[in-house]
Design a protein around this nucleic acid. Structure first.
Length: 209
DNA sequence: TGCCAGGCCCTCTTTAGGGCCTT
């Protein structure tokens, strides 16, 4: 059975919702059968100030945010768009914090786990000199983004990274498919023990294919 | 005005420290 993954990326006003940071933009990219087949993207207005450093980093200005749809509308739309598909993000701990904080404001509860492409990339590509998203994209020869630090571009690059990770694992360990359950396990598995865990999973995965 | 976090992971570690990664 083909599995769908929802790759998401937030641009925000800072690093922590616990200190008042809010999202300014979100993108979600649906990945299935080795390719991107749908995507959602929107700026959003949470009524917060965009610091100059963030505007310089992302190109998202206070004027852009002021004229964007309300944060509650956008979060409702992106939640509906991703449904119950497993969520994927680069450094998922960051996006998970903002996802959960905005869901809490809407009195919604997250339905699925977050898969972290950063944790996976550190295990699958230990030779990369950095595991930043843009560095990995260049290192792996992934389709280049027009610019980084915009939600849709970063989500698209992360989607290609996820596909590359899955293909790498399939090739190296002769897997017929790479499930979200396997990725959730691997991202918590020490790199040295990864092969052992995959062998344990591969028999069940291949027999059910 | 525009401050600020925190989990992972390595090592000169485990009674800790510091770099990486996200905005």
């Amino acid at each position: 059975m083909l599995q769908t993954f929802a790759v998401i990326d937030f641009e925000t006003t800072g690093l922590s919702p616990a200190h008042g940071a809010r999202p300014t933009e979100v993108a979600a990219v649906l990945v299935r059968n080795g390719q991107i087949y749908d995507q959602y993207h929107s700026l959003m207005n949470a009524g917060v100030y965009v610091p100059p450093m963030i505007e310089a980093l992302t190109g998202i200005s206070n004027a852009m945010v002021r004229s964007a749809p309300n944060v509650n509308v956008v979060m409702g739309e992106v939640a509906e768009f991703v449904g119950r598909y497993p969520l994927v993000a680069h450094n998922a701990a960051f996006d998970c914090k903002f996802w959960d904080a905005e869901f809490q404001r809407l009195k919604l509860k997250r339905q699925q786990e977050f898969i972290c492409s950063l944790l996976l990339a550190r295990r699958v590509y230990p030779g990369a000199y950095s595991h930043k998203l843009n560095v990995l994209a260049k290192y792996l020869g992934l389709p280049a983004a027009e610019r980084y630090h915009r939600a849709l571009a970063d989500a698209q690059v992360t989607a290609h990274l996820l596909l590359d990770i899955k293909e790498n694992l399939k090739r190296r360990f002769a897997l017929s498919q790479v499930t979200s359950d396997l990725l959730l396990t691997l991202q918590k598995t020490p790199a040295k023990k990864m092969a052992g865990h995959i062998e344990k999973y591969s028999a069940a995965i291949n027999s059910s294919a």
